[in-house]
Design a binder for these strands. Structure first.
Lengths: 204, 204
DNA sequence: CGATTCCTTGAGCAACCTCAAAAGCGGTGG
DNA sequence: CCACCGCTTTTGAGGTTGCTCAAGGAATCG
């Protein structure tokens, strides 16, 4: 279920984990991600739909609607997330904002492409890192503990091009290695949706 | 070596296979790819540089220079290619061209991401398909034979997240399966740089 | 308390990687 | 023309990582 809020002059939409945000070939507007993370899927030639891209805080999704009037991808919330409509009209030159969006999209694409090579453990660790960076407001360059909501194992598998089982094993391994905090049984948190990261600055 | 031609009012640059087009963090302008294919690389945290994206005919590379004044990626020619400067000044609304470029970049990213999952044989086949589509001028929707210059095995390996050896094996396999033409010994073509595709329309 | 869904863990196997050697191609120079 | 060199590609044999299949645990909801 999605709650629409008007705060100041911005439309804010909230989505829960796993919820569909928009569907390919339907009409709608573009959104900027205020918090949380989103997966984009495309339709394969064979009709299946498969992971196409990842979007996190600051990224714009659905920009193609400004050109074609329809979404080019299906978007689903990987974690609870908040979106605001884009572009914000008040911004001065549209081309500047667009250019910034383009540059960001290319960097994100490079990151996601990189997520799909190397050892399984490393891939999952890198994905967690990206999500962790997206969770923190300002880059506090100190080693800080912060809570990150992980996507479902299936979603993580789709992103890293691994299987659900391998991702699960690697998450366990990261926990054992101290990168992720052990499960909080006492506090009744969802079994594995919450994780605590410890060393944010560097990737050894 | 790069030849600059002025044809009409367009600057056309030509690059050979394997040649560096531009280097990350250096100054320069953006380019649209007129023909051929290009790989973009980014610098890893550890200093290595690794495959970040693929660009083919119609794609724009180096758009971020319009914003930051420097290239965000290093670009190298996968095959002989021709570039023209971008944006072409005469185009009416900049934002329209930019939007089109953004949409294209997102579709390309999705394609490259998809190139990195599934069986090795399929990945290589899909890469060849993409390069073949980029080689043909108009989408002739009939089954047509056309010549495609393949990138080096190492480049294909970097793109598909396989090893050089596996790519070589899969290319041999595709030849045996009739997707790629057998080597032309008679015509003195380079051993494996040229390939002929046969069924362009569909991907069974 | 079922029923459902998601996650975890195990065992065996196959696809792909690693290491290694040989062959093809292009260039240079005798 | 042939020999030689450097580079890329091809092909082979064996090892490992991650996949497949399967069963069991944990949380949520009625």
């Amino acid at each position: 279920m999605q709650f629409a809020k008007i705060q100041g002059k911005r439309w804010l939409l909230r989505f829960d984990r796993g919820q569909r945000i928009h569907v390919r070939d339907t009409k709608g507007t573009a959104w900027r991600i205020v918090s949380g993370s989103v997966r984009l899927d495309r339709e394969e030639p064979n009709g299946e739909h498969s992971f196409a891209n990842l979007a996190i805080r600051g990224d714009v999704i659905g920009a193609e609607t400004l050109l074609f009037g329809k979404y080019g991808f299906t978007a689903t919330a990987l974690t609870a997330c908040v979106l605001e409509s884009w572009p914000e009209g008040h911004d001065s030159p549209v081309s500047d904002s667009l250019l910034r969006t383009l540059a960001k999209a290319e960097r994100r694409a490079a990151e996601v492409i990189a997520l799909r090579c190397g050892q399984a453990a490393d891939r999952v660790r890198r994905l967690v890192m990206i999500l962790a960076h997206s969770a923190v407001e300002q880059p506090t360059h100190a080693a800080a503990e912060l809570q990150v909501t992980l996507p479902s194992r299936q979603d993580m598998a789709d992103i890293t091009a691994l299987t659900l089982e391998t991702v699960s094993r690697m998450v366990s391994q990261l926990r054992h290695a101290g990168v992720l905090a052990p499960l909080h049984h006492g506090r009744r948190l969802s079994q594995s949706n919450f994780a605590v990261r410890q060393t944010l600055g560097d990737t050894p």
